[in-house]
Amino acid sequence: MIVAIASGKGGTGKTTVAVNLAYLAARSGRATAYLDCDVEEPDGHVFLRPEIEEQQPIEKLVPTVDPERCTYCGACARVCRFGAIASLPKQTVIFSELCHACGGCRLACPVDAIREVPRTIGILRRGHSGEIRFLEGVLNVGEAMSPPAIRAVKAAAPKDAELILLDAPPGTSCPAVETVRGCDYVVLVTEPTPFGLNDLVLAVEMVRALRRPFGVVVNRADVGNGRVREYCAGQRIPMLGEIPDDRAAAEAYSRGQMLVEAVDGFAERFGSLLARLVERKA
């Protein structure tokens, strides 16, 4: 079972939910993997403190032009929909950050002057935290496009894990979509504020467009107002659980501690959340 933990708004508690669920699932004997798909700002390692066993580069194919063969005809630049190639009278310039690696330019070149070569855009790190198998993608600073790195993390998911938790990036566009695509279930984490509600509605539109089953967790449940709960009830969205606003929890989080270990009552809360999640798709 693959579960993505997502949200429209940033900082609602995706990583908190994902790492604490992973911890309890592994402790109950399930083969559990945690995959950090927030490759722009991966934070799961701060809480899970994994031992990293292996690192490998994440690569994207980008074109390279053989100047001996190139006739500067411009066919590659005309076919590129991403503006990643400029054809000048005596030079063909490739902007590899803009390249989506579609391969169209190589197909379009009439003289076979284009080859595709791997370019490193980030690192895939693999390890474990206790019984939890840990994977994270780390995008290189300055790289604009995270979806290829997210694809690499998802492709490396252990095949024999019973529960795979994907910690998604915030938002509702390509990086979030890339993470949520193909999951069995999506947990949307929000907070009961006007910003939380506005962004939850956008996230619900996204998961509905992707046709994924989903439920909501309300974090810092006692701040704000009742509008998020009213919205979920009106839309018949399952409420999976609530996490209270707790100074001790906020301080434990700030130190990078696991709430289920550090704060009284949180093991029970996350335990019932896990039970509800597993029941849904068991």
Binding site: G10, E40, E41, L139, G142, S146, G171, P175
Partner: peptide, 9 residues
């Protein structure tokens, strides 16, 4: 926006 990717750049 949050992150360091395309919209932030």
């Amino acid at each position: 926006s949050p992150g360091i990717g395309c919209p932030v750049i």
